[in-house]
């Protein structure tokens, strides 16, 4: 849905598990190493399918990314006490389910800053507790639950594969573009820009 040489104004369409699409700035999306590895240099033709995560979760994740666009490059975990008021509000307003969904999505998208702040929060929950107290907090899974988790991990791997295939497909198209004569290349780019314009006007 964009050109490879994306500027901060460039928007990408993201598709959630409900099939809904919404746009995210290139600058925000570039905080995702998964995105960088797959789409940054080739662009995306059509919505990027992050269909393992619901819209609310993805919006929450990219809300964080949009907010931290202008922050300096991530240089390792920050102590919770050093988080800004905005960061604290961001985390505090999430319930546990949303928090877990956000970690899962952030982990998949490989957004270092967000993942590390979430993990730091979990570490804080367990700080100073002995083993017995920790067992109570972390609610150890049963064998069935571990098996179910294994299945979820496999499903996630399949989703990642799907995204990778999409990236490969786009790359193939990009390569084809490069082989086109100049006239055709101009026309194809014009079509892409028109589609992009339409996607914004649909909102």
């Amino acid at each position: 849905m964009t050109s490879p040489a994306s500027s901060s104004e460039v928007k990408y369409l993201i598709e959630s598990s409900e099939g809904n699409t919404f746009d995210v700035s290139g600058a925000a999306l570039r905080q995702s190493n998964t995105f960088n590895a797959m789409f940054l240099n080739i662009g995306a033709d059509g919505p990027i399918p992050f269909t393992d995560y619901n819209e609310a979760t993805l919006k929450k994740v990219f809300e964080y990314c949009e907010h931290s666009v202008n922050e300096e490059n991530y240089s390792g975990p920050k102590h919770q006490d050093d988080l800004s008021k905005w960061d604290l509000n961001f985390f505090n307003e999430m319930d546990q389910k949303m928090f877990i969904d956000v970690i899962n999505a952030s982990n998949f998208l490989d957004i270092e800053r967000l993942t590390s702040y979430c993990c730091e929060r979990i570490a804080r929950m367990l700080r100073g507790k002995n083993t017995q107290e920790m067992i109570k907090v972390i609610t150890l899974p049963t064998a069935e639950e571990l098996e179910a988790k294994q299945k979820v991990e496999e499903k996630k791997a399949a989703a990642a594969k799907k995204v990778a295939e999409k990236a490969a497909e786009t790359a193939e198209k990009t390569e084809t573009l490069e082989e086109l004569p100049v006239q055709q290349l101009v026309q194809t780019t014009r079509n892409k820009l028109t589609r992009k314009y339409l996607s914004f006007s649909n909102e």
Binding site: N107, T115, C119, M125, V137
Partner: peptide, 15 residues
């Protein structure tokens, strides 16, 4: 968010 219980194993291994 309730800090008295947290299903750690709902998270992916990396997290």
């Amino acid at each position: 968010m309730d800090a008295s219980s947290f299903p750690l194993f709902c998270l992916p291994d990396k997290a």
